[in-house]
């Protein structure tokens, strides 16, 4: 979030100072963000704080009222149990890291590649764009769960395309690839964001570069990528955050099996909270996840100073 560099083009320094001064306004700032801030204070903050508090309690969710204090503080017990005495906890950590490491980069690369391919005015591109987006909007109903299962069956589409005979759901070494493949298959949302980002790049830049004799790859590396970095950064951050929180596919398609190889973290949180009713423990797990995601996000933000280029912040067009 570096805002130190202000427009340093043809604008005079006097105007620059005025601009900086003009840009700073607590009143206007808070006025513009007030919808979010009010919503946050009213609706988001309390549940977040409640879950933080509950993570230090033995709160049993079934039939016990939070407001009436049907719980006791247990200090760091939940965290101790999680780290040292929960056999499945580390399995879920391992599964989640496995998933994030493969699903996030593969999905982003695929999304960017397809967005580039579809960012043209060729005939039929409308159709292709719709076709490539469809797997991403099928949702999570029973019919859809059945559909995904069918596709990964032994005589299903995936084995047919790959020419393999793998039991995708039953083989502990492959089950995670079902979830990773689904994540890549449903690349629609980062793809659309990339497309919108590509659209925002002024065409005259390409024209100018073409006149200067730049070829496709030069234009790609010198114009497309730099100007797309804010969007790449956004997608990277969001896909990482969402990757750690992937729930639906694991819940409806693999159910954590076999041997807990697909027991993604939120699935285990749900299981602890709503099957074992140990909402205190589940909250503790959730907060460990929050800290982990926050850590990775911070690293991404720190690195962004090195590689993300904001036209609006630098003003060098």
């Amino acid at each position: 979030m570096s805002n130190s560099a202000l427009p340093a083009t043809l604008v005079g320094s006097k105007r620059r100072v005025r601009a900086r001064h003009w840009r700073h306004s607590n009143l206007a700032g808070y006025l513009f963000i007030s919808p979010w801030l009010i919503g946050y204070l009213l609706f988001a903050l309390m549940p977040i704080l409640a879950s933080l508090m509950l993570s230090f309690t033995n709160y049993d969710v079934l039939g016990h009222n939070i407001l009436r204090g049907d719980w006791d503080f247990v200090g760091l017990d939940n965290f101790e149990k999680m780290f040292y005495h929960d056999y499945r906890y580390w399995k879920s950590v391992k599964a989640t890291l496995n998933y994030v490491v493969f699903a996030v980069p593969l999905r982003l690369m695929f999304a960017l590649a397809v967005a580039m391919l579809l960012n043209t005015k060729r005939h039929g591109v409308y159709f292709y764009r719709a076709a490539y987006y469809t797997p991403s909007v099928v949702g999570g109903s029973v019919a859809v769960a059945l559909m995904w299962r069918e596709i990964f069956q032994r005589d299903g589409l995936v084995n047919n395309i790959l020419g393999t005979e793998i039991y995708w759901f039953g083989n502990p070494d492959y089950a995670m690839w079902v979830l990773v493949t689904l994540a890549v298959w449903q690349f629609g949302s980062p793809m659309l964001v990339f497309l919108a980002g590509l659209r925002q790049i002024p065409q005259d830049m390409y024209e100018a570069a073409s006149i200067d004799g730049a070829n496709f790859f030069q234009r790609f590396w010198r114009i497309t990528i730099p100007l797309l970095t804010p969007i790449i950064f956004f997608n990277l951050v969001m896909q990482t955050i969402n990757g750690f929180q992937q729930f639906t596919q694991a819940f409806i398609v693999t159910g954590g099996r076999p041997l807990d190889r697909t027991l993604l973290y939120p699935l285990y949180v749900y299981n602890r909270g709503f099957v074992s009713f140990q909402m205190g423990y589940a909250s503790a797990m959730a907060w460990v996840l929050l800290v982990t995601i926050a850590f990775f996000t911070l690293i991404l933000f720190a690195s962004s100073r090195l590689w993300v280029y904001y036209q609006g912040d630098e003003g060098k067009s």
Binding site: L146, R149, Y167, G170, P258
Partner: peptide, 16 residues
């Protein structure tokens, strides 16, 4: 069926 094979059917319910 082995565990690996049964996983194909486990979630399909009676119909599958």
């Amino acid at each position: 069926p082995s565990a690996e094979q049964w996983a194909e059917y486990a979630d399909l319910g009676p119909e599958g």
